[in-house]
Amino acid sequence: MTSTKTPTTQSRIQRIGDTVVRFILRSPLHPLLSKKLLIITVSGRKTGREYANPVGYAEYEGHLLIGTAATWRHNLIPNTPVRILLRGTNLQATHEVITDEPRAATLYREILTQNPTHGRFAKIHLDPDGTVNSADLRAALSRGTAIVRLRPL
């Protein structure tokens, strides 16, 4: 007997939501969402299939910061730019995946300051003094969370 893997209700809702967000970000209505969301397109390392992922971002020192635990980041190929759709404009961007705690703490502070909602999903919070809670960050990094830093070309 073979087992059939069925998507959970949550993953179905996520896929539907992502489809709607991609549609809006690619349309003239993109200003509704594009101040906080962009689309990053990566190719599967094994399949070559393209995946267009809507993600939240923060801007910091000319870079775009994406906090994520999603597996799409494993398809990023070193020294190979990715395509992004940022505020209605298609661009190429270089990338760096950051998983070390000291750099992640600095960058996550920016992400959480600009997008507090992300902290609830990532389970990372700012302490009263405005620094990233070390225990939260350490736990998130151990669960596979990383920061993808993009530099548009």
Score class of each variant (00 low, 15 high):
118 H>E: 15
120 R>E: 13
46 K>M: 03
54 P>Q: 00
151 R>G: 13
45 R>I: 08
1 M>H: 10
124 I>V: 15
31 P>A: 00
13 I>T: 13
110 E>S: 14
83 R>M: 13
127 D>W: 05
134 S>T: 15
49 R>Q: 14
1 M>V: 10
34 S>P: 13
95 H>E: 00
138 R>V: 05
147 I>N: 01
63 H>M: 12
5 K>Q: 14
148 V>E: 04
82 V>Q: 03
50 E>W: 08
152 P>V: 07
149 R>M: 06
62 G>R: 14
45 R>K: 13
9 T>F: 13
38 L>H: 05
65 L>P: 00
4 T>R: 12
132 V>A: 08
57 Y>L: 05
133 N>P: 11
106 T>H: 10
102 P>V: 06
66 I>C: 03
26 R>Q: 12
115 N>R: 02
112 L>C: 02
150 L>W: 10
23 F>C: 08
111 I>L: 09
91 L>H: 13
43 S>L: 04
46 K>N: 04
58 A>P: 00
86 L>A: 01
44 G>Y: 04
77 I>Y: 07
133 N>T: 13
118 H>I: 15
92 Q>W: 04
44 G>A: 02
71 T>E: 14
70 A>P: 07
105 A>E: 04
150 L>R: 01
126 L>M: 12
139 A>K: 08
85 L>W: 00
77 I>G: 09
36 K>H: 07
57 Y>N: 00
140 A>E: 05
83 R>S: 11
11 S>F: 04
10 Q>L: 14
146 A>R: 10
14 Q>D: 15
47 T>E: 03
27 S>W: 00
123 K>N: 11
48 G>T: 04
18 D>Y: 09
87 R>P: 02
49 R>C: 01
78 P>N: 04
62 G>P: 05
4 T>N: 11
135 A>H: 01
120 R>N: 12
22 R>S: 11
104 A>P: 12
69 A>N: 09
149 R>Y: 01
87 R>E: 13
140 A>T: 00
129 D>S: 10
33 L>Y: 05
9 T>H: 09
106 T>C: 06
121 F>V: 12
141 L>A: 03
84 I>P: 03
6 T>L: 12
29 L>H: 05
145 T>Q: 12
93 A>W: 00
153 L>Q: 13
136 D>Q: 00
132 V>S: 09
74 H>Y: 11
114 Q>N: 10
147 I>G: 02
66 I>R: 01
57 Y>M: 04
9 T>N: 12
78 P>D: 14
101 E>Y: 10
44 G>M: 00
65 L>A: 05
149 R>G: 01
120 R>P: 01
44 G>K: 04
113 T>H: 10
153 L>W: 07
111 I>N: 02
114 Q>K: 09
144 G>T: 06
107 L>H: 02
124 I>R: 02
78 P>C: 05
13 I>L: 14
74 H>K: 14
